[in-house]
Amino acid sequence: MSEAPADSLWLHHYRMCSLTEVVELSGLTESELREWVEAGILDPADPQVEPWSFRADCVVTLRTACRLRQDFDLDTHSVALMVTLLDRVHALEAEVRELRAQLPQTHR
């Protein structure tokens, strides 16, 4: 199996994805994606500029949101609430990691 470097793609905030790409990667339809943008689950880079583009790391959030929607049978507003809380948890986890890294080993 050959492996071209282009096969690997970091989903981080430096890279942008087009609307079509996000639809393909998330498994949502375009109208569902627009509904989710309206509900505040994700934001386009610039809502005024059509077609929309998104930061690549939104794909991670979207895939989680899709899973939660399906596995817990959630409506759009519950998904929005869940994603807000998950984002907060992830930010706090990152902060804890950062603070832990700065603690000397002997004090842990």
């Binding site: 096969d7 970091w10 794909v59």
Partner: peptide
């Protein structure tokens, strides 16, 4: 068995997409 090339630049919690794998 899938061969995955992990380019440098990883850190904790980061996601990598391998197209078509």
């Amino acid at each position: 068995t899938v061969k995955a090339r992990i380019p440098k630049g990883a850190t904790e919690g980061q996601r990598l997409r391998l197209s078509g794998k």
